[in-house]
């Protein structure tokens, strides 16, 4: 292995870590500040793409043994399910609710269905972007 590559890969690892943190931040800040599921998803995707660039694709895929198409589908499922949930509770489709738990040690935890919804969005975005990139780059 060439020295250059080692350096590149080390840097990549670092950058990916930073990007992942950013993605997480963006995801949760969407509530009150710019951000949200979509952007977080795209940022997350770009982190993974960076990994592809730094390492070769196969290594990365070994490390993350996921079928990204399925991730995308899962995301849609999650997003739609939050809506279907409301049907079960007999409130209008896609009515969001906030559940607050007072957990020991962690204090108040707010769990909103919006978050679930946004998570679905983010997952779809990651899944789709990676699927497209992977499909094309495998083909070219």
């Amino acid at each position: 292995m060439k020295i250059n590559e080692v350096i590149l890969q080390s840097i990549a690892k670092l950058v990916v870590f930073i990007i992942l943190t950013l993605a997480l931040y963006l995801f949760f800040s969407g509530h009150n500040a710019p951000g949200g599921g979509f952007i977080a998803g795209l940022v997350l995707a770009s982190a993974i793409i960076l990994l592809f660039l730094a390492f070769d694709m196969e290594t990365v895929l070994k490390g993350i043994p996921l079928d990204f198409k399925m991730i995308a589908a899962l995301g849609v499922f999650l997003a739609v399910s939050t809506g279907v949930g409301s049907i079960l509770f007999d409130v209008p489709f896609l009515t969001h609710t906030i559940v607050a738990y007072d957990l020991p040690l962690l204090g108040m935890i707010e769990l909103s269905t919006v978050t679930l919804f946004e998570a679905g969005v983010a997952l779809t975005v990651v899944g789709v972007v990676i699927t497209i990139i992977l499909t094309i780059s495998e083909d070219v």
Binding site: G83, V91, P92, F93, L94, T95, H96
Partner: peptide, 9 residues
């Protein structure tokens, strides 16, 4: 008559 559904209430 016509049915309507307001999403998210």
């Amino acid at each position: 008559g016509i049915l309507k559904l307001d999403f998210g209430g």
